[in-house]
Amino acid sequence: MLLFLEQLLNGLQFGVTLLLMASGLTLIFGIMNLINLAHGSLFMVGAYVGATAIAHGSGFFLGLLAGVGAAAITGMVMEFVIMRRLYRRDHLDQVLATFGLILFFNEMVSIVWGRQPIAMDPPAFLSGTVEFIPGAPYPAFRLAVIATGILVTGFLYFLVMKTRIGMWIRAGASNREMIGALGVNISLLYTLLFGFGAALAGLAGVMAAPFSAVQSGMGENILILTFVVIVIGGIGSIRGAVAGALLIGLTDTLGRVYIPDLMRLWLPPSVADGAGASLASMMIYILMAVVLAFRPRGLFQTHG
């Protein structure tokens, strides 16, 4: 039971990382109608810059800031130089151009940092454990990640639904010309918005860095999972992104732990472990297929 709770929290923590990625991606898609494969590259940039800054003694918060800032700036430059030429293009063109960006960023990273993965330790003040469930000490850093994710998502929801900027954003999505006529600089708004989505990806990158090897290509693994989150949740829906991210985070984490155990009930251990592990790695995709079979436009399908 305690192990289960711990795994539940791990799943939540993974889900929160996915959520930060998904909300940026779905925001950009929902508003600018742009599919950006290079969103994973921004995650990677965040992780590399954050990890490097911390390794050079910047301290955790400055490192975090560096990672998030680097991702945001990269995102805004990306938008300014390339993306704004693609808003009116079809999705195929967008996929291809951003595929080109991925190749560029992955190679760039290995030119700067080499092909060997680099590691990042959680900050000292969060390296301990918290025993908030009696008998189950839980890593403080993971808890901090969960808390940050929830706070940021709450802030995002508030920003989009309750503020004037959010109103512009939502209006811009439905009527670009009209909002332009109101004297709002749409181009600038879009650049900033893109930078904001990129910052979220960078934040996710820095926070995920201690759990995974920071290496070239790391962005695409999480990008594809983020796609699954969005597909399950429903495009353009923040609520859907939340539901999808939690579902995928939990399914993946719990699946890896428990599916092999479950398989042992029917199969000899040697077979069960292999089959269980392979089933676990496919689990989220199977989940996606099942959801789509019943709800082709995702759990929280938006109109249109």
Binding site: I35, V231, S278, S281, Y285, A289, L292, P296
Partner: peptide
Amino acid sequence: LISLRTSGVYFIMITLAFAQLFYFFFVSLS
């Protein structure tokens, strides 16, 4: 059958995810 009931960006993402499913299948096909 599953992905063609959708279109546009959905279709792009779903086909990508399905390919990933098979990728992991063969990775684990020891």
